[in-house]
Structures are given as C-alpha cells and as structure tokens.
Design a protein around this nucleic acid. Structure first.
Length: 954
RNA sequence: GCCGAAGUGGCGGAAUUGGUAGACGCGCUGGAUUCAAAAUCCAGUUCUGGCAACAGAGUGCGGGUUCGAUUCCCGCCUUCGGUACCA
C-alpha cells in the first residue's frame, strides 16, 4: 500500500464528522482545558498560509491535551463586522452581508481542508443578530453602570441615582467626568435633560465630543493609517479633524486593575511590557494655574512638580476648550492659521514629529502660583487633547521637547535641577539638586517633589494624582457594517436604552453605504428605521470592530443560548481560556479591551474569573515578498509610465514616482535584489491589470509599448528591475499564498508539519515552499516503517530490544517536553530522527510503532488515524493515551566529555556517568592526548561540569 | 519619535539553566541504481589555508564581565510589529 494523502485525509475527515469526534460536552469527569485561537476576519482574499500557523499550533496542543486526558474546548468563529467589507461594498456594490457570507464559506472550506479539531457546533459569527444581541446587551450594562471607586467595582446607575436623591453627589467616590458638586435638592430640581447630562458623566458607556479624520472628497471618516501627511492614502484628498458627539467607554476606570492583573498571567514579558506602557501609569500632581485677566484656569498634570520654577511657558492642545476664550485679538490670526494646520495632522504624525517644531502663541499668560511670574500660553500639536488634561507646564531645562520648543521660539530657559552629582543620569531620571527654585532650592529632586506636592495641596490649587496614558475608548463609528447601538433619543435629545426584550436591534438593510455629507453614519439614510413613530430617533453610529471580539470566547462556551450570553453552568464549567494563541498585532488593542470587558462582567457577577486568558502565546507572522513597480506620477502622452528601479536614481526621479505593488508571480527572481520583469512578465501583468495595456515600460535595455519592445542597442528582452520587500502577506500586496494549493499537492498532514517545521511559532518568517519536500519525504519514510514499496505490511508483534526502546523513549521525551514549551519545529526534527534511527535498525515492531503513531497524532492526525486502524485498533486515535517517557530506557553508562584546553576543544574523553568531579579532574590530566597540550604550561585550574564538559585552564 | 521583537552557514533553523556553535531539513557537490531520467539510497558540505593531518577565524557591529558568552551587561546598526477608526 502506498501513502496516498488525499485518500487517507478524505476518509478520516468523513469519519470524524460522522462520529462527531470533535464535539465537546459541557459536562465531564475529566479536567477541562480551553484552547482558543484569535478568530479571523473573513477577508475577500481567503486564508493565506500565514493564518493557519497559529491554528495548527493550537490544534496540536488541543489534541495533545485531549490525549493527555482533558476535556478540551477548541472552537472557531468569525470576526465578521468590519471596514473592508464595507469598503468593498462601496467600490463593487456587493452588500457586506453577502460578501461576508461568501468569504466565511471560503474560510470554512479552507479550514476544513487542514484537519482541525474544532467543534463547529459552537461556531460564532459576530455579525449574526443572535450573537450581537449579546454585544448590545453588554453595551447596555455598561450604559447602566458606573464605577464606584470606594468599592472598586462597577455598580448600577440606579443605586447612584438613589444616593443623588438623598445626599447629592458630594460624598460619592466614583470615576467620572462630573466636575461640579450638587446637593440632593439641586438634583431633584433638575430637568430630565440636566439629570441625563449629569448621569452621562458617570456611565461606563457615555457620550462626549471626539475628533475624527474627515475626508470631504471621499465623504467618509478615515482610520489614522489611511491618512498620510494630511491627505487620504487613497486618492490623496485633504483630511481634516472634525468634532463629533460620540459614544465612549470609560475604560480608564479599570486601568489600575488591568495593570495589577498582568502579574498573575502567563504571558510573555514583552507582551506585558507593551500593555503596561499602553496603560502608562504615572504618579504626579495636578495643578491649576490662574490666568491673567481671565476667569478660567489651566489644569495640568505633571510628574515633575519640582520643576515648576522652571516652567517658562504653558502648552495647550490645539483642541483645548480654553483656546477660543483666551486668545487675544492680536494673536487670533496666528492661532487660526495654526489650528488649520493641526486640523490636517493625524494623531500619529503629531506624536512622531520631532524634526519640525510648530506652535502658536495665544497672547494669554498664566500665573505661576509660587512666584507670580507671568507664563506665556502657547498651543502646539505635541500636546494631545485626550492625553492627561490636554495641557502641560513646559519646563525647557528638563524636557527635550520643551527645550526644542523654547529654543525655536526664543522662550527663556531657567535651569532648576543641578545634575552634576549624577554624571550618568539622563533627563528622564528624577535625580539632582534643585536650584533657582525658591523654598525647595538645595533639596534633592524626590524631596522637592514631595515638598511641592504637599504645598500645592495645602494651597488648594491641586492634588496628588495618579494619571494613566490609557484613554477612554472611542466606541462610535460612522459606519454601516457594525452593531447598531440599542439606544434611542427622545425629542429633547435624551438617550434612552432599549428594553432587553427589544434586543437584538437588527441592522437595517440599506444599499448605499456612503456616509452623509455631514459625516454622520450611512445608517442615517435608513429613515424608516431611524425615525420612530413617536418622534424619537435611533442612534445611527455603529460599534467598532473590537465590540464583538471583546467577549466571543465566552459565547463559545454555550453558543446557542438565547437566554443569556452563555449559561451560568457553562461559564462555571469552562471558567476561562487556558491557552490563547494569536498574533502580536493584537498585543494591546484586542487583548486590553477583552480584559476590560471581562473585568466589568466579573464585577456584575456574570463570570467567575477577573482575567479571561491565563496563558497566551503570540505566533509570528508569515511574511510574503512584496514586489513594487515604479510608476511616474506624471503620465507620458496620457499613458501610465513605468520605470526601472535602477533608473530612478540615475534620473533623479525618486520623489516623482508611485510604488505599485504587483502580483509577485509575474516577477522574475522575485524576492531577490535582482527581481525584474521581462516581456513575458509584462504581458502577464497586462492580462492581470488590463488598465495598463497602453502603459509604457522603460528600462535600460529598452522600452515596451503597445505590445512592442523597442530595444536600446542589442538587447532582446526587457529587464525592468522591481523593488522587493518582505512584509505582510495579503490582498493589498497580491502576494497571498493559498494553503489549498499546498494541501492539494502534499496533503494537509504535510502542510501542518511543514508550517511547524519552518521555525518557532512565535517568530516571524518569510513563506517559502523550498523545504516542504523534506517533510514530505519524511512522511513517506514514516509510512515505510509500516509498508514496503510493494505494499507489504511489515509490522510484527515481537518484543522490542533495548536499543529500539531507547530510540522510542528518546523521541517520546523530546516531543512531550517540546510540546509543553511550544517548540513544535524541534518536535518535527525528533520525528525525523526517530524514523531515521528505526529505519536503520530495520525495526518494525508493533509496540514501538503504535506508540509512535499516538505521538505523532497531534501533528499529522489523518496519517495517525489511518495507521492506528491499520495496527488493528478500533475507535479514534484521539481517544488513546499519550505515551510518557520511561527514564529506565534513557540511562547512559558513560559520557564523552569534550576537553577544552586554552579555549579550544582538544580531546574527547569518556568517563563513567557516576564519576565525581574530583575523579574526573584528576584522571583527565593523566591522559596522553591531554598531556601533549599541557607541555610547558602550568595547569591553573580544572573546571568539570558533570555530563557537560571539562575545561583545563592554563 | 515612542513601545515591543528579531538578527547564527548559500537558505529555514537547533543549541531548554553561561558549558562541544551549526541538530533536523532545503540547496549544492560526488557516488550507487538506471539505456536515460524521475524517484530512491550512500557520502560530503560554516568560512579561509592545506592533498591530508591540521591550523586559524566565526553567532549583525563595537566594547565589557567570566575558566568559558549565540546566551549576561553597556553602546550602536538593520529589519519587522504596534502606535488608539486595518483586523
């Protein structure tokens, strides 16, 4: 019998489906284990070979755990709401619901082709009303709760209202944006609108004005990464900042718990560090500065209140509320001009900008509360509205950006910290002795911080404070393809939540997905849906992508439930995710939002754990080659003009071309520095992109135009160099490799093992099929342990010898250990070694091979299932017991020590395994092969590391 | 810019706690088998010099700690990911 991957794989997939081999029960006497993958967004280009990397790893682990006796939950679903489907709809006119379903079907087929052990009866799809009913339900809970800072948990708005009614808000300790205090009588005298506004300042889901990237020409709001230098990436149209009233989640209330929670998680330190930095806790002092001739005050947060005597100017965010009221008539023009400039800047550009210092003077002055100095108030893009208080006291002597700003605008600099005592300290270190600082002069920095903080509190102009870089999450999108908010507004604009029985609030079907001219959501056009009979209106924004993905792992526990997001029994049984596998690109966004929602649900008593993901492994990205062709920005005689990458420099055209990613497969020598396109490639390119059929292709060998190649000199073919890069694999770069193609050729067991063999799961690496033959050969050699080339069954039921058992148990030990530490590439090596060694021994014994079949089952499930049955077993190999290593077969009697003499390995000498350090050190010096290296030298020291090496120091 | 990660033969990578650098695979070279090829099998393969024995160098670059550093420390360089509306 020959190894026929396709036949075997079809056969067993059918068997698994028929026998519901991967269906998981919520009740079991076995211990539970929950293995979760980050679910995919079903894009139009289907899965590429990068996606399955993590799925294969988690599948191996899930199968391994099952073989080790656990009840394993290993589900899959789709993150189905999102921007690409909507953009596709705008461009091509296919409704997102339709394209999403098409894409999901394709994904499912591709996933099925890889032999995963998913329990598909638990599939979730975030865009399905059955699912988003509960996303909306969680939103309503957020809306109906506030954060009680005394109890340190979320509590109901009703309980807050009853306190207001009795005592007002003076004694309430809550994380809120409420700035004024009121008494019970005042609360009771408020109009419904006023009360609603006050409560908005407490709700965990609340509304506030936020800025979006608005592109008038495209008629849409853009993501930051779609904005480059103030213009849209697509089309190059101007983009401005537009204020809009939007929903936010008060995620900052969980900052401290999110930070502390990290300590008990089994996540990589790198990942925890990224989350810690994102949360950005800092201890400091809030200080209010009076303004000269103005009622208002500037509120700043500073970690360096000690440097207040060096604060020679203040900087407000351009969007700061005070800007309009404090700007003097003389400065109005300059400020207006500057605001126009900052409107065009994306937030990322504003933070990243270091070369050019920009800003404008408001004409106003703040007063230093300690010495009464007048401090000019500026605005600049480097201060962000939602970051801290949106205002800083600038201390040029102790902050690089402030220093640059002061130098650029000629603002005076006062040194306040003498660091001569600390020669290695950087600006960021809080060390030094205070100078020029009135009553703190002479103090060490930490003492000065303490002294000034106390003074600020005593004077009533501020207080000690912990600040977080983390910002409240913007929860509104002016998009169609997302969850509708379960909110309606009455005639006074007061929001009202829908009743639970009214959920899900289904997304209405519309045909035109372009937003309105004012930037409001396309849902506004569904007038029948928006306008309710009683004159009320629905919220037209939709929720962002992270809404549905922040809790989906709970839904898998009980995916069909229409009474609750999942039953209490199911949640109590599965508890939390034991192993989560996904990409680092989600290191902060998704993981932080999920943790936040989970903590909220924990406060409300819906989940038993306050962290959702115990252990997390980040898989690396499989990268693709990206090939760019350069096109001149200006057309030649109305034709697109492509030019050789090597001609760019000589002709000085670097800044006058656009790089266009082209289909990698049309490029010769793609991925190398010499990648190029010849006439053949150009023809293929034109076939693929008919809009370039009239284009000009110019290289040093000649010009291709209108199907003709006009050579310069003797050349016979075009040799137009392209630019190769390694980067993301995806539709955008036309470089996606479909796993189906690989599976068709080699089978999915081979594909699974090859992806693992490529290298550590955590590492990113470029895709290359070059080595897959090696894995395929291995599988056939493995098969050859059971059948010879004539199809003769070789397995014999005789007792294995010591050598065979040692070979087997070495592999069992290695594979067990390596799976536990997620090192699957070395597992594959171990399989190759054991197969090679058994083949050498011509060993075909059942006891050995049967263990090997179970050992390989998580990696190559179809192959293992086939051989398991060929060995005469019934039922699935997935219900076998995973073999454990038996140390008695692994013992070595002696060990060959490498002997280092003067940094070089000069000899290899065997010593018995139980020889002591002293014995070895003594004996090794007497050996002939050692002595010849010691002539004329004195032995200073002999280092013996048992079972490792010997080092003779001379 | 800031935060995080990675850098080892021609290539993917191994070396788990500071202890023989290059396991395993690809590719390449030579050989066997074959009319020939494919497939398969065997041997070799870090670089430099040498017929060889052997010698020297070597884990992005520059320093340091150590008997011993791919591994720890300091300073750089390059690439990748994230940077709050891509998912």
């Amino acid at each position: 019998m020959d190894y026929d991957a396709r036949k075997i794989e079809h056969k067993w997939r059918k068997y698994w489906t028929k026998n519901e081999t991967y269906k998981v029960n919520n009740e079991s006497s076995k211990p539970k284990f929950y293995v979760l993958d980050m679910f995919p967004y079903p894009s139009g280009s289907g899965l590429h070979v990068g996606h399955p990397l993590g799925y294969i790893a988690s599948d191996i682990f899930a199968r391994y755990k099952r073989l080790k006796g656990y009840n394993v939950l290993h589900p899959m679903g789709y993150d189905a709401f999102g921007l690409p489907a909507e953009q596709y709809a705008v461009q091509i006119g296919v409704h997102p619901e339709k394209s999403t379903d098409t894409n999901i079907n394709r994904y499912r087929a591709q996933l099925d082709n890889l032999g995963f052990s998913f329990d598909w009866s638990r599939e979730v799809k975030t865009s399905s009303p059955d699912y988003y009913k509960w996303t909306q339900w969680i939103f309503l809970q957020l809306y109906k709760h506030y954060y009680n800072a005394k109890e340190n948990k979320a509590m109901s708005i009703e309980s807050l209202v009853s306190i207001f009614e009795k005592n007002g808000n003076a004694d309430i300790k809550a994380n809120s944006s409420q700035e004024t205090t009121f008494a019970a009588e005042e609360w009771n005298a408020m109009s419904p609108k006023e009360q609603s506004d006050v409560l908005m300042n407490y709700r965990l889901a609340y509304r506030k004005v936020q800025y979006v990237n608005w592109c008038e020409a495209l008629g849409t709001v853009l993501a930051n990464d779609e904005v480059k230098d103030g213009f849209s990436e697509r089309g190059g149209h101007p983009v401005i900042k537009k204020p809009m009233l939007q929903w936010s989640l008060r995620t900052t209330v969980y900052a401290e718990r999110l930070l502390k929670g990290l300590d008990k998680l089994e996540w990589s330190d790198a990942l925890k560090a990224q989350q810690r930095n994102w949360i950005g806790r800092s201890e400091g002092c809030r200080v209010f500065f009076d303004l000269e001739g103005n009622e208002g005050k500037i509120e700043v947060f500073t970690t360096r209140v000690d440097t207040i005597f060096g604060a020679t100017f203040m900087v407000l965010a351009p969007e700061h509320d005070l800007v309009a009221s404090i700007t003097t008539p003389e400065q109005q023009n300059e400020i207006d001009k500057y605001l126009e400039y900052t409107q065009s800047r994306s937030e990322r550009e504003r933070i990243a900008e270091v070369k050019n210092v920009t800003g404008a003077f408001t004409g106003a002055y703040a007063i230093n509360p300690f010495n009464g100095d007048k401090i000019p108030v500026w605005i600049s893009e480097y201060v962000l509205k939602d970051y801290g208080t949106g205002a800083i006291m600038a201390v040029p002597s102790d902050d690089e950006r402030d220093m640059k700003f002061a130098k650029h605008f000629g603002i005076k600099i006062v040194d306040v910290v003498d660091k001569t005592k600390y020669p290695n300290a950087t600006l960021h270190d809080k060390v030094g002795v205070m100078i020029n600082s009135d009553f703190v002069t002479g103090m060490e920095v930490p003492d000065a911080i303490e002294a000034l903080t106390q003074r600020v509190e005593k004077m009533g102009i501020g207080s000690r404070e912990v600040n977080y870089k983390l910002r409240d999450a913007n929860f509104s999108r002016q998009r169609y393809w997302g969850e509708p908010f379960p909110i309606k507004y009455d005639q006074n604009g007061i929001p009202h939540p829908l009743q639970e029985a009214e959920l899900p609030l289904e997304l209405p079907y519309i045909e035109d997905f372009k937003p309105m001219a004012d930037g409001s959501s396309p849902l506004t056009k569904a007038t029948d849906w928006v306008n309710l009979p009683d004159g009320w209106t629905r919220e037209t924004d939709t929720m962002p992508g992270f809404a549905g993905s922040s809790w989906y792992f709970l839904r898998y526990m009980d995916a069909q439930n229409d009474e609750a997001l999942a039953s209490k029994e199911a949640i109590d049984y599965w508890q939390d995710v034991d192993l989560y596998v996904g990409g680092t690109e989600h290191a902060v966004g998704h993981l932080l939002y999920s943790r936040t929602w989970h903590k909220f649900l924990y406060d409300l008593g819906y989940v038993p754990t306050d962290e959702p993901f115990k252990k997390l492994v980040n898989q690396g990205m499989i990268q693709g080659v990206i090939e760019y062709l350069y096109m001149k920005k200006e057309k030649t005689n109305g034709k697109a003009h492509f030019i050789c990458a090597k001609l760019l420099k000589s002709e000085g055209l670097e800044n006058n071309v656009i790089a266009i990613p082209i289909k990698v497969s049309t490029v010769q020598k793609y991925g190398s520095p010499d990648s190029f396109i010849n006439i053949d490639s150009i023809k293929k390119l034109i076939e693929w992109r008919p809009e370039y059929k009239d284009a000009i292709f110019e290289c040093s060998k000649g010009i291709y135009e209108d199907g003709q190649f006009k050579a310069k000199g003797k050349a016979t073919d075009s040799h137009l160099f392209t630019n190769s890069e390694v980067g993301k694999m995806g539709k955008r770069y036309h470089n996606a490799v479909d796993p189906d193609d690989v599976v068709n050729e080699y089978g999915s067991d081979c594909f699974r093992m090859y992806e693992m063999f490529l290298g550590p799961v955590e590492q990113s690496k470029p895709w290359d099929t070059k080595g897959i033959d090696g894995v395929f050969k291995f599988i056939r050699k493995f098969w050859a342990l059971f059948y010879d080339e004539n199809g003769k069954y070789l397995v014999e039921d005789t007792t294995p010898n010591k050598e065979e058992l040692k070979i087997l148990h070495t592999a069992i030990k290695k594979v067990n250990e390596d799976i536990e530490r997620f090192s699957f590439n070395t597992c594959i090596s171990a399989f190759m070694v054991v197969t090679r060694d058994l083949a050498k021994q011509q060993s075909h014994k059942k006891e050995i091979l049967q263990n090997l079949v179970i050992l390989i089952a998580p990696f190559a499930p179809h192959l293992a299932e086939e051989l398991w049955h060929q060995l005469g077993n019934d039922g699935t190999v997935q219900d076998a017991n995973y073999p454990s290593p038996d140390e008695q077969y692994l013992k070595e009697d002696s060990y060959i020590y490498p002997v280092q003499i003067g940094k070089k390995v000069r000899a290899k000498v065997p010593f018995s395994a139980d020889a002591t350090r002293e014995e070895i050190a003594e004996k090794v010096l007497e050996l002939k092969e050692v002595q010849k290296w010691l002539e004329g030298a004195t032995v200073r020291k002999v280092v013996v590391v048992p079972k490792r090496m010997i080092n003779i120091v001379i």
